[in-house]
């Protein structure tokens, strides 16, 4: 497959379905891998994975990361992503309910590339996802990772 996957880290099944719907609606056709908690996300990224079914690290095109997650929260996942040389340049977009200054500042401090709040209105949400897809999957030039 040419296009790399999108890793969606989301524990709420409703939000998962809505995000998938918004992606589909905006004709974003990349494979979408869903991790339902922080540990699953790291498993997928660092190759000890149940979801990926392989043991080599697998870099997605982008990570859409919720903050409030079971086991490891989003901030912790982000910290581990940035700490590992294999994933430290991976684009990570925080996609969350919170607009608390504290959460925003912390996420950027840990190296988030973008911070997007999930609106209640689905039309706005879909619009946000459309912009995300356009920017991160089309306009943005990602760093070339080694050995891919």
């Amino acid at each position: 497959m040419n296009e790399k996957a999108i890793l969606l880290v989301e524990d709420n099944p409703d939000d998962e379905a809505l995000t998938l719907r918004a992606l589909k609606r905006n004709k974003i056709l990349n494979e979408i891998v869903v991790a339902r908690d922080g540990a699953e996300a790291l498993d997928y990224l660092f190759g000890t994975s149940v979801i990926s079914g392989q043991d080599a690290p697998l870099n997605p095109e982008i990570v859409l990361l919720d903050l409030k997650l079971p086991k490891l929260d989003g901030h912790e996942v982000l910290k581990r992503i940035r700490a590992d040389p294999r994933t430290k340049l991976l684009p990570v977009v925080i996609l969350t309910s919170s607009t608390e200054d504290e959460d925003v500042v912390k996420a950027y401090g840990l190296g988030a590339n973008s911070y997007v709040r999930k609106p209640v209105d689905f039309d706005q949400f879909s619009e946000a996802v459309r912009h995300l897809g356009l920017y991160w999957l089309v306009l943005n030039v990602p760093p070339r990772s080694k050995g891919r």
């Binding site: 709420n12 409703d14 939000d15 379905a17 809505l18 719907r21 309910s97 999930k118 609106p119 209640v120 209105d121 689905f122 949400f125």
Partner: peptide, 10 residues
């Protein structure tokens, strides 16, 4: 907010 998003979205 999360359930509201679901109500509106679905």
């Amino acid at each position: 907010r999360a359930p509201l998003r679901a109500i509106d979205g679905f």
